[in-house]
Amino acid sequence: MTKGSPLSGRDPKNSERTTINVTDGTLIPSKDEGGLLSAWNISFFGAVGLLVALPLLSPDPYLRILSFVPDGLIATFSVTLSSIFFALIIGLFAGLGRVSQNKAINRVSTIYVEIIRGIPLLVQLFYIYYALGPLLRLQGPPAAILAMSICYGAYMAEIFRAGIQAIPRGQMEAALALGMSRATAMRRIIIPQTVRIILPPIGNEFIALLKDSSLVSILAVSDLLRRGREYASTSFRYFESYTVIALIYLVMTLFFSRLVAMMEEKLRHRGNVH
């Protein structure tokens, strides 16, 4: 191998464009930082330790809280996973629209991205559930999934766009020169190469979505946060309830951040999607 990194090997001129960093992610220890005292290790194992120790040392209320919230955890995950699924589909098409040569399609996709990214998610949730409630007549969970999919679809679109634009132009030209249509070239040449550079930012969006899913607790969705609130409001154990909820979110997001970081590392070191 005469060339440097696997990505820059194709077109030296574009090498600096091939890494994309869309979200700010959490603080993952880099390899050289390492050590047991890294911020991640302290936070993660500290949180896990507390979640184990508190119920053991003081079963009332901590064990009660822990046994009260699993339903909410399921709701949180089902909202998060459904939303990410639809957001990916919306994002793929909107992202393709953002790089489309068709002016109308390009304009519509760009307007979608601009509008959605300009309105807070909480406002979008209110809008779909309350403002459009009489029209859509959606229950809490479907309204939440719809709003989150539309919102995160716009962010995903930008990730897809950045990923597509990170592929050297010569790839599309080579495909066209071989007689492929733009659509075929996208499907067979560009998108498969895009996947590995957009996986880490998509992972980060997943984590962000997991955290933002706590907002749906206001739409009559019994997610993790709402279950915690329900427990707190009947037992008046606000401090204990919300401590447990915060720790559970923390453990989840730190766990997934680490997973994304590992995936990123692996993709960086492995040459290609073989």
Binding site: G170, E173, M180, S181, Q193
Partner: peptide, 20 residues
Amino acid sequence: IRHIREEVGMVFQSFNLFPH
């Protein structure tokens, strides 16, 4: 143009092989 391109081969400076 697609039909014409089928009959016109092209070789680039940067090779442009499909890395995947």
